[in-house]
Amino acid sequence: MSPTTMKKKIRLSIVSYLNSKPFLYGLFRHNLDQEVDLSLDIPADCAKKLLNNQADLGLVPVAILPQLAHYELISDYCIGASSPVKTVCIYSQCPIEEIETLYLDYQSRSSVALAQILVKKHWKLSPKIAQASSGYIQNLGGKTAGVVIGDRCMGLEKDFAYVYDLAEVWMQYSGLPFVFAAWVANKTLAPSFVQKFNAALAEGLNQRQQLLALLPPQKQFSLEEYYYKNIDYQLDEAKRKGLEKFLQEGVELGLL
């Protein structure tokens, strides 16, 4: 494919959660928001836009990669984790082996596939799988648990007896870190734009302390720890191996 012309704004979809704020901060500091048509979306909608060619580039759930006719990972940055991530968890009032129904977060693509892989292959369980809708968290209880992702997780652990961090469990299962979302284009973009884009992402990550000073504090949640410890933004070789294993197992189980 030939590079897209820069005369037309690149349509960019970014996850709207706090974990993407460093990237957004860098894009605005580099004035790249003037060169793109930017939309902030929940992960599932980021995925739909890239799949339906309503976006050219996105910070999208990696679970959609097998569905794309053509894709390019244009950056060495991602939303990943090499330790507990804190914002992708199964919340339950009973131990995992006693769960009878597991709700899957409607905002998610990668995390719900990850949860099902771990339920089947790590815990070797077979609860009823249910698709959640808005407001489902308040209905969790008894032997009904749920996968919850994103900012809604912040402080949620106090309401549940059992919390299973899926990045941590994936590490126990596979020995590899996990990639939740990556910068994916569904067409070839101009190299000059890609270079400028990655420079903006790098600056955003380098300016996390300045960003933290601008963001309101979160109750019962350390954003500084989240940005520097829980989220691992480097798409390094270990994460690429983790991504490959996730995609392979997801396809084998018919989840992707």
Rank of each mutant, 00 (worst) to 15 (best):
L65Y: 09
D76H: 13
N19F: 12
N52W: 11
E100G: 04
S39Q: 14
L114M: 10
L32W: 00
A63E: 12
T101F: 03
F246G: 02
A185I: 04
L68A: 07
I137G: 02
R29P: 00
Y71L: 05
Q131R: 12
L24K: 04
N230V: 00
L214H: 08
D56V: 04
T5G: 14
L38M: 13
N139W: 11
L256N: 13
G242Y: 12
L12H: 03
S108K: 03
D232F: 14
M6D: 08
Y233N: 06
Q210S: 12
G204D: 08
K245H: 09
L256H: 09
Q116W: 09
Q248I: 01
Q195C: 02
G141H: 05
P217C: 06
S222V: 04
L243M: 13
S92A: 15
E98G: 04
Q209H: 14
A63D: 10
N139A: 14
V163Q: 13
D165A: 11
D45C: 04
H70D: 03
Y233R: 08
V179Q: 01
L211C: 06
K158P: 02
V62M: 07
S134D: 13
A238S: 13
S110P: 06
L102H: 08
Y164I: 13
Q131P: 02
I74T: 12
P66W: 10
E168A: 14
D37Y: 15
I99W: 08
Q248R: 14
L247Y: 12
V62H: 04
P43I: 04
P22C: 12
K21L: 07
Q220Y: 11
S82K: 15
A199Q: 15
S174W: 10
Q138I: 12
G135N: 03
E249R: 07
S126A: 15
L104W: 08
L140F: 09
S82P: 00
L68F: 12
D159I: 01
D236I: 10
S2D: 10
L18T: 14
L255Q: 07
G135V: 11
S13Y: 10
N19S: 15
P61A: 07
Q138R: 14
D159E: 14
I137N: 01
Q209V: 02
A202R: 14
E237G: 03
Y162M: 03
S133M: 09
L51S: 09
S126I: 05
L57N: 02
L38Q: 03
S20H: 02
K9Q: 14
I96W: 08
L247I: 15
W170R: 11
L73T: 05
N198Y: 11
K121Y: 06
T188R: 10
A115K: 03
Q220L: 06
E249H: 10
C46M: 02
I14M: 11
S174F: 09
L125G: 04
L114R: 01
R29K: 15
L235T: 00
M1G: 14
V179W: 00
D165S: 11
V251C: 11
A132H: 08
A167P: 00
L205S: 07
I117R: 08
C94I: 13
C89W: 00
A185N: 02
P216H: 08
V112N: 06
P22S: 08
T87A: 08
V36E: 00
